[in-house]
């Protein structure tokens, strides 16, 4: 058993894609609600106290998205009240609520995803698609701090020539453009050094091996397969219209069916697994420690 953080990045990515794409494409209330709650709980477990900020801004997004629809769309049979002679309907409000839950859960999931994907993992995933583009990306990432440091150095140097001043906004913009320009030359010229260092070590001479410290274990394979199967169940239910919902004029949902229920169960498992894994690993760790 491993936390999502420690899983092979490919499995983790597949997992996240499944868990986020399903509520995007199957806007069925139970699915979106499960996704929203599952993501919120996972973010809380993952970030602890720091999660408050994420909750606040996702909450704000949720409220806005909920309210926008009834203000714009006036379809629906049940009129709640009128604003300036235009009706606000229950169906439109529920529609808004449903999409808001789906959309903000996506934001939640991706926040969690971005948190566990460091640059090494990102490169590992990306090199599956294109090793060369991954190399470009890795180089770019490495140069960002270098360029920033050079920017600071250049500013000091130019200042002592009397060519940079931040006395007023025009001077500052002019000065910053100047420094930026100096840094661009520096970056391009030094990029050639990096390129030569890469070429000297055989870059571009053969098909690259992607060497990583990540290992693809049986558990990773199992997790990936499980995610695929569970997603398959949801997709089947969607294809056979077992998870349909129409909001206008009245709310009509698909009738209960075995496949529909199975899909909902499958998604509940998917959304709960990240939290269960995190909690499970923690509990087992404490247990092992207490025995030692």
């Amino acid at each position: 058993m491993k936390k999502l953080d420690d899983m092979h990045p490919l499995s983790a990515t597949l997992f996240f894609l499944c868990v986020t794409l399903i509520p995007m494409f199957i806007p069925y209330p139970i699915i979106t609600a499960v996704s929203f709650i599952g993501a919120a709980v996972y973010v809380t477990v993952q970030e602890g106290r720091a999660s408050v900020r994420t909750h606040l801004w996702v909450g704000l997004l949720f409220v806005i998205l909920t309210l926008v629809n009834p203000l714009i769309s006036h379809k629906g049979a049940t009129i709640l009240f009128m604003i300036n002679d235009t009706p606000v309907t229950l169906e439109a409000l529920l529609y808004g609520l449903n999409s808001a839950a789906g959309l903000s859960s996506v934001v939640y999931w991706f926040a969690a995803f971005a948190r566990i994907m460091d640059s090494e993992k990102l490169l590992c995933v990306f090199s599956v698609i294109s090793a060369r583009a991954a190399l470009v990306m890795s180089c770019a990432l490495r140069y960002i701090p270098l360029i920033r440091a050079q920017f600071r150095k250049t500013k000091t140097a130019q200042r002592s020539l009397g060519l940079y001043s931040d006395g007023n906004i025009v001077d500052k913009i002019r000065g910053d453009m100047r420094v930026f320009s100096v840094v661009i030359t520096w970056a391009l010229e030094n990029g050639i050094v990096t390129a030569d260092s890469m070429a000297a070590r055989g870059c571009g001479s053969a098909k690259r091996t992607a060497f990583t410290t990540e290992r693809f274990t049986a558990f990773d394979a199992f997790a990936a397969a499980a995610a695929a199967v569970l997603t398959g169940v949801c997709a089947a239910a969607a294809l056979y219209d077992r998870l349909d919902i129409a909001f206008y004029p009245d709310i009509v949902m698909s009738e209960g069916s075995l496949l529909g229920a199975a899909a909902q169960a499958a998604y509940i498992i998917l959304a709960a697994v990240p939290t269960i894994l995190s909690a499970g690993v923690d509990i087992r760790w404490r247990y092992l420690r207490s025995r030692a």
């Binding site: 890795s138 050094v193 260092s197």
Partner: peptide, 9 residues
């Protein structure tokens, strides 16, 4: 160039 010779992070 010690800094720029390094390729990865």
């Amino acid at each position: 160039e010690c800094e720029q010779q390094i390729v990865t992070d």
